[in-house]
Nucleic acid binder design. Structure first.
Length: 802
DNA sequence: GTGTGATATCTTTTT
DNA sequence: GATATCACAC
């Protein structure tokens, strides 16, 4: 019977064999977590647990799919009937069935981040608030945090602490924005990502029948990456598991990297008190990486204060040291990575797919891509600008969305005048006002001529009517016409195709092809087997020969990310992705690039210990992706915002026990002189623009304002007195992690022995000797003794300070 | 109402 | 460098 468990080590096997009651598995990196989880599900199924009584929640579709595949391989197709998916997708499915009690139609729209932001921008504008005080991204993150903590707008407005925070941040109106934002979402029959959790909780909290139904259905619950759950997810799971208490959570506090979006490590620490009868297993043996990599990773994570102590160890070989390299620029870094991949492939007969390049931020992919292309190394980027985020795709999807749910305001606004049909800004503003007056959706105003009011002139009204008729006619077919057919109809009716055809450029041609790809995706969707849920039993069965409708497609893709589509024909490619996206994956050779201060750790995360510790865990995740070879690199100059910027090696590099590094000496500080030379090399002014000083400055300046000012002035010979302005608080903070740039040094002609000088930091002194034509001087200072200085960079004044 | 250029701001990380 | 917003001419 449980012979499948013999593939596992004792801890894994005990965890997998566990059937009833709460269970917590603390699984270190590379300890066979997914393996244990899949074996446990397989074991449950072998013990005659019905697959549709098992709920397995993951954070990514990829993780869910992988688990499904692995279970299928173990015990066959029965696995496909397990409820397995991301929190968001499973809850969306529940809400489509039962969300009507909350006032949502079955085909509610799911707003993506862009939709939410544009809605917030509109609200800020109409409330006459300053968009600079209320940037959409910040407001959204505040709202998102509130929703993740299950805080409604009303509770938000009443919460003294929260309001004080907003007031202190000089953004006192966020609560009001939140309230309006939620009303608008509802009026648009739309939910944002956080609503999927928030409303799921409402459903279980306020409707005992519904709670009972899902408790009956989900007799066995498994949660992957439990350390990444936020409060909403935690509470929902707790409610669902309350009846049977068959809950199994798997996690690793050392890999918690989503605190920024509300994940709470406490959830894992509180498991004990929530489920006093729990059992726990620790998986500490690493099967993935060499001793060197495991040791290096341990030395990193040990620097964190908040952690459950674990002893990750491995029986694997010692392996190579961790390779460290310093590059001149991000471009050079890319080339060095590409060349190494090329060499290793040749020498060790590895596949492209054995390599991954990991970075902190998506925009770092560019230099890597360029280099890989140069060497003809095929690669695939995960994440980043997704296919579904391209303009033309979003435009077509907006028509799809409108056809499914005309109340979808963001979709309506996107296409009401695209292609141009003479419905301009003024008209839209009037419609918005009307919608608000009548407390109805924008679509209600557009589609109901009697509601349009006197302000709309008859010409415009005709245009509006024509648009409304078009959308209505599309909406009619949505329930009866098969998805691909429907999609094609909408595409042709939208008029976008004709616009592209008319344009007749290469660009338009590309966009057309992208839309074709979208239509193909719809076609594929109609051909895949369909999961049908029996509402009585919760049983999931697979049906092949049934029509699939466009609304189903739309509800599917809203939660699909780039990593999920695009299952490339040729899988043998180098993987490029952010470290976040790499969680859960492993590669023979891993390159972690951009190991620089202000990039990794991010400049946004160096202010508090908790933030810094999350960055460190992120680094830990990056390092533990590697099986055999690990390369860490940093660039001394990075191209940011169209300019080269000085970079310092990341503090994390110094935290690795040097015994695991092949060349720790790379970390030794570069002299200011070399830095300045390399700065000059990479920031040659492209052309001199005469009187346009701004332009000259832009082409030679550094990004942080105080540095930029000081340096560009030194280059253009501005008086030093100008440089002594008091530093703002902001610039002090920056100064902490940014190397001091060369300042306007005094000219070497004025220097002679026994000259009195004054140094900003060292105070007064006397020049003892002048070397190398005045480039270097030795000064005997009154307080700190003898120092050798480079005149070019030392902030010296001749004589005594005034 | 539409379309064009200038310009300000920009960067975490994701479902 | 890339994108979102703004000012101005048509």
């Amino acid at each position: 019977m449980s012979n499948i468990l013999s593939d596992l080590n004792p801890e894994q096997s005990q965890a997998a064999a566990h059937i009833d009651g709460p269970l917590m598995i603390i699984a270190g990196a590379g300890s066979g977590k997914t393996r244990t989880l899949t074996y446990r599900i397989a074991n449950l199924l072998q013990h005659r647990v019905d697959p549709f009584n098992i709920l397995a929640l993951t954070f990514t579709n990829k993780a869910a799919r992988e688990m499904k595949d692995r279970i299928s391989n173990l015990i066959g197709t029965e696995a496909k009937s397990v409820w397995m998916g991301t929190f968001h997708s499973i809850f969306a499915r529940v809400l489509r069935v039962d969300g009507e009690v909350l006032g949502y139609p079955k085909d509610f729209t799911i707003y993506d981040t862009d939709d939410c932001k544009s809605l917030i921008r509109a609200i800020v504008k109409e409330q006459n608030l300053d968009p600079k005080t209320y940037p959409a991204s910040q407001v959204l993150s505040r709202i998102s945090n509130a929703k993740s903590s299950l805080m409604s707008p009303e509770e938000y407005l009443q919460n003294v602490e929260i309001r004080a925070q907003d007031a202190a941040a000089k953004k006192p109106m966020i609560g009001e924005i939140y309230k309006i934002y939620n009303e608008r979402l509802k009026r648009s029959s739309a939910m944002d990502f956080d609503d999927l959790l928030f409303n799921m909780n409402l459903l279980l909290r306020d409707f005992p029948d519904i709670l009972a139904k899902y408790q009956r259905r989900f007799k066995y619950i498994l949660v992957d990456e439990y350390q990444d759950t936020n409060y909403a997810q935690y509470l929902i799971v707790k409610k669902l598991a309350a009846a049977h208490q068959n809950i199994c959570v798997v996690g690793d506090d050392a890999q918690s990297i989503y605190a920024f979006r509300g994940a709470n490590i406490q959830n894992i620490l509180n498991f004990k008190s929530d489920y006093p009868t729990f059992q726990t297993f620790k998986l500490e043996q690493n099967y993935r990486s060499t001793k060197t990599i495991v040791g290096g990773a341990n030395s990193i994570i040990s620097k964190n204060r908040d952690q459950i102590r674990k002893e990750i160890w491995t029986e694997n070989i010692e392996g190579e040291k961790i390779h460290l390299s310093k590059c001149d620029t991000d471009k050079a870094e890319g080339l060095s990575v590409a060349q190494k991949i090329f060499e290793i492939k040749m020498n060790e007969h590895l596949q492209n797919s054995d390599f991954a390049v990991l970075y902190r931020t998506n925009n770092q992919s560019r230099s890597i891509e360029d280099a890989l292309r140069q060497l003809n190394i095929p690669y695939r980027i995960y994440g980043g600008q997704s296919f579904y985020q391209r303009k033309e795709i979003k435009d077509v999807l907006a028509y799809f969305r409108l056809a499914v749910n005309p109340n979808d305001q963001e979709a309506l606004l996107r296409v009401i005048n695209y292609p141009a049909r003479g419905i301009g800004q003024t008209t839209i503003e009037r419609l918005r006002v009307l919608a608000d007056q009548h407390q109805v959706s924008l679509w209600d105003i557009v589609s109901t001529p009697t509601l349009q009011g006197d302000e709309i002139n008859s010409g415009t009204r005709t245009k509006l009517d024509a648009f409304a008729v078009k959308i209505k006619s599309l909406n009619v077919g949505i329930k009866t016409t098969e998805a691909f057919e429907m999609a094609t109809q909408i595409w042709l009716a939208s008029g976008i195709k004709s616009a592209f055809d008319e344009e007749d450029t290469l660009e338009a041609e590309m966009r057309l092809r992208n839309v074709d790809e979208l239509l193909n995706a719809v076609k594929d969707f109609t051909l895949t087997e369909q999961q049908v849920v029996n509402e009585e039993t919760g049983e999931i069965s697979l049906v092949n020969n049934e029509f699939r409708m466009l609304d189903e497609f739309m509800s599917d893709i809203a939660l699909i990310t780039d990593a999920d589509i695009n299952q490339d024909d040729d899988k043998n490619k180098v993987s490029l992705m952010t470290i976040h996206a790499a969680k859960g994956l492993e590669f023979a050779c891993v390159f972690v690039v951009g190991m620089e201060e202000n990039l990794f750790p991010s400049s946004m995360s160096v202010n508090t210990r908790t933030e810094l510790e999350e960055e460190r865990r992120l680094f830990y995740v990056a390092v533990t992706r590697a099986e055999k070879k690990l390369f860490l690199s940093f660039a001394e100059n990075r191209f940011i915002w169209g300019q080269y910027t000085f970079c310092e090696p990341s503090r994390f590099l110094e935290e690795i026990d040097p015994m695991y590094l092949d060349n720790p000496e790379v970390l030794e500080k570069t002299s200011m002189f070399e830095r300045f030379e390399s700065y000059k090399t990479y920031n040659k002014p492209k052309q001199f623009l005469g009187s346009n000083l701004r332009k000259v400055e832009a082409s030679t300046s550094l990004p942080s304002t105080p540095l930029r000012e000081r340096l560009s002035r030194s280059l253009s010979g501005v008086e030093m007195t100008d440089l002594q302005k008091p530093k703002s608080l902001m610039s002090m903070a920056e100064a902490k992690y940014t190397p001091t740039p060369p300042s306007a040094g005094i000219s070497s002609e004025n220097l002679r022995e026994n000259q009195k000088v004054h140094h900003e930091k060292f105070g007064s002194g006397i020049i003892k000797s002048v070397e190398q034509n005045g480039e270097k001087i030795v000064v005997l200072f009154d307080t700190v003794g003898e120092k050798t200085l480079l005149t070019k960079f030392a902030k010296l004044q001749i004589g005594l300070p005034d």
